[in-house]
Each structure stands twice: as C-alpha cells, then as structure tokens.
C-alpha cells in the first residue's frame, strides 16, 4: 500500500469533446492533467495551492481551482478551459471585453480571470432587476483571481461590459459584441 502504480480509467468531456483518459497516477490534479497530459496549457499554475486563481476552469459549469482538484475524483465531469471558450474565431463576449478594456498586462492570470468572469456573470446576482451590474459586486466576485500586474480596473470594466453585452444579447439580437481591434480610448 502507498506505492500503488495503478492505471485508473476516467472519462472527461473537455471543451465539448469526450475523452477517455487512463490516469497512471492518482495524484494527478485536473490542472496537471490539462497542462502536462492533454497539452491544454491555457490554465496556468501560479501557486498550485488555491491561493491565486490562475488555474480557474469551469467544471460542470462552476468555477473551481483546478490545482486542488484530483482528476480521479472528477470522473465523468465536463470541463471548460480557456481554449474552448471562443466560438471558432469569434471571441466570447468576456474575451472581447478583456481585450477592449486592457484587462490584463502580462496575461498570465488572464485565462483564469476570464473563466472566473464567465462564471460570475452566469451565477447572477450582479445586478438588480435588469439594471447594470454593480461594480462592487464584480470586484468582490473577481477577488479570487490575483493579478500581480494590477489590471484590476480594466478587469472590472471588462466584466461590466461583458455583463451588459450578454444581458442585452440574451434579451435582444444575438450580435452585440464590440467589433474591431482598434478602439478609441474611452477616457
């Protein structure tokens, strides 16, 4: 006991693709599975201890820290990583909003920030009765994702913009995404 090198088969749906995976080691976390075995390196390892949020992914629709999740315990789960968020070449509204609002600098925490934001908007509760999202609730809701570059103002603006776009999109026409790569500074 204790040195069992057993092969454990699990099934995961990763970015919509069902994958049969044989774990050679029960110690493997979802983060190390994605990064070292499935070549999905978008999720980042900043601390490996649930203290920075850089590894945030969505598991069955909720955001978690992939670094503290043993893969073997998530047999059957559906994972969404940053690589699966855009629709082909069309960015998800949150991705587009991060770009528009310069919600990052070095970009290392960005995949985690974006997935955390996607989940935060999905969780609801940011706004009252169809109003705009409360920036304070956005800031609190994004506080599990450290950004050492300090891009927090842009991140908050990005989530507010994406929330507005997604709320509007849900209510009205499908295409309300900000277009183009060259935007004039709003300030």
């Amino acid at each position: 006991m204790g040195l069992s090198i057993m092969s454990i088969p699990i099934t995961l749906t990763v970015n919509g693709v069902r994958r049969e995976i044989v774990l050679e080691d029960a110690r493997v976390t979802l983060l190390d599975l994605l990064r070292e075995r499935l070549d999905l390196t978008g999720a980042k390892k900043g601390c490996d201890r649930g203290q920075c949020g850089a590894c945030t992914i969505l598991v069955d629709g909720t955001r978690i820290n992939a670094c503290l999740a043993l893969a073997v315990s998530h047999d059957g789960a559906s994972l969404l990583t940053i690589e699966g968020l855009a629709d082909g070449d069309v960015l998800h509204p949150v991705q587009a909003a991060f770009l528009d609002n310069d919600g990052f600098q070095c970009g290392f925490c960005t995949p985690g920030q974006i997935l955390s934001a996607v989940a935060l908007i999905g969780e609801g509760g940011l706004a009252e009765e169809g109003g705009p999202a409360d920036p304070e609730r956005v800031r609190e809701g994004m506080s599990g994702n450290l950004c050492r570059c300090g891009a927090y103002a842009g991140i908050t603006q990005a989530v507010l913009q994406a929330h507005a776009a997604m709320t509007h999109a849900a209510m009205h026409a499908p295409d309300v995404l900000p277009g183009g790569n060259l935007t004039e500074d709003a300030a």
């Binding site: 390196t41 978008g42 940053i82 960015l91 770009l99 990052f104 970009g107 060259l182 935007t183 004039e184």
Partner: peptide, 24 residues
C-alpha cells in the same frame, strides 16, 4: 499616440499565448 488594443491580446485571451512553462 493611438490607444490601440494589444496586438498580443487575442493570444492572451484565448489561451494561445505560450509561456515558458507551457512549452513541451
């Protein structure tokens, strides 16, 4: 002088940007 968005931005928001530890 133009407030362009980052040219590396699309790679960073899609996870396509490979940092050193992402190289295999």
């Amino acid at each position: 002088g133009l407030p362009l968005t980052r040219r590396d931005g699309p790679d960073k928001v899609t996870g396509a940007a490979r940092y050193s530890a992402d190289i295999r």
